[in-house]
Simulated scan of single mutants.
Amino acid sequence: MHFKTIHDVHHCFDHDLKPVEIINSGDTRRFDILDASGGLITRDSKAEILTRLPMDALNPVCGPLFIEDAEPGDVIEIELLDFEPGGWGWTGIIPGFGLLAEEFTKPWLKISEYDNESVYFYDDIVIPFRPFAGTIGLAPAEPGSHSIVPPRVCGGNLDIRDLVKGSKLYLPVQVTGALLSIGDTHACQGDGEVCGTAVETRMAATATISLHKGDSIPAPMFDMPAVASDNHNEGYIVTTGVGPDLMEGAKNAVRFMIDRLKKKAGMDEELAYALCSVAGQLKISEIVDQPNWVVSFYIPKSIFKSHSLKAI
């Protein structure tokens, strides 16, 4: 089926933005989503471009849509119906950004081709194609222009890799009309998006938007369907971070994995860091045995096509 496409983009969340369209509960729209650079990064770009990207123009989102009858205290449901692949994407280490920003200070850029099944990340590293929109949000009640970069309780740059086709995201309405915007599509991403980027790509996304009157929730929630396996049936390589601070534990678990990939697979540390961002899974394994908590970082062995890489 063909649905009306939203092309208009904006670069902030603001409840004073003029909506591009007024829609009704149950309407379906197709969003023509630019990559996180707004199209400034091309297949031929070099890493240097990451030092001069205009930060106020990054992560453009399509919209906003005004949902008829939506009021504070209501909930908007976004059912994700389809993602249309764009064929290629980029992963970058941007100076000053990412979990280990203080350690990775130089720009680094990787262009990846992909198809409907796989992202061809590097030589013998192939990651399952698992598209989703990193940014889905409603306008906040607070007045003024708000950056798209941080997530909020009314949604935004959530970067939840499980918001795939078939998922339903629920967001609390804070302003009249809700003002829904969607952007930041990814071909694949690891839990945590630790280097700050996934495989960023232009994509079209189709979603049905529904209103639930009076069904107040405090923050985003979602229903995730049963999905086909990521083919991660060969096990995982897992590192950990242990200590009294979860953030430092997350950093240490990722540092540990980067070190293993460097020592055992011969990877440059930038490539290892980026791989952690697009394919790893950062998890809290234990948070009850005070004073120390355990954060684990998983890399699926199935993404490595060389047997030597599976033994790191």
Score class of each variant (00 low, 15 high):
residue 213 K to A: 11
residue 213 K to S: 10
residue 213 K to C: 02
residue 214 G to A: 04
residue 218 P to T: 11
residue 218 P to Y: 02
residue 218 P to L: 11
residue 219 A to K: 05
residue 220 P to G: 01
residue 220 P to K: 01
residue 221 M to Y: 12
residue 221 M to W: 05
residue 221 M to D: 07
residue 222 F to G: 03
residue 222 F to Y: 15
residue 222 F to C: 13
residue 223 D to K: 13
residue 225 P to Y: 14
residue 226 A to S: 11
residue 226 A to T: 09
residue 227 V to H: 13
residue 228 A to M: 10
residue 228 A to Y: 04
residue 229 S to D: 15
residue 230 D to N: 12
residue 232 H to A: 14
residue 233 N to V: 04
residue 234 E to D: 13
residue 234 E to V: 00
residue 234 E to Y: 10
residue 235 G to W: 08
residue 235 G to F: 01
residue 236 Y to E: 11
residue 239 T to G: 04
residue 240 T to E: 15
residue 240 T to W: 07
residue 241 G to T: 03
residue 241 G to C: 01
residue 242 V to T: 15
residue 242 V to Y: 15
residue 245 D to E: 08
residue 246 L to D: 08
residue 246 L to M: 14
residue 247 M to C: 09
residue 248 E to L: 08
residue 249 G to V: 02
residue 251 K to N: 05
residue 251 K to L: 10
residue 252 N to L: 07
residue 252 N to A: 13
residue 252 N to C: 08
residue 253 A to Q: 06
residue 253 A to T: 03
residue 254 V to Y: 05
residue 255 R to L: 05
residue 255 R to V: 09
residue 256 F to C: 08
residue 256 F to Y: 11
residue 257 M to N: 11
residue 257 M to A: 14
residue 257 M to Q: 15
residue 258 I to E: 05
residue 259 D to M: 01
residue 259 D to H: 14
residue 261 L to R: 05
residue 263 K to W: 02
residue 263 K to Q: 15
residue 263 K to H: 11
residue 263 K to C: 02
residue 263 K to T: 10
residue 263 K to G: 01
residue 265 A to Q: 10
residue 265 A to Y: 02
residue 266 G to T: 03
residue 266 G to S: 10
residue 266 G to H: 09
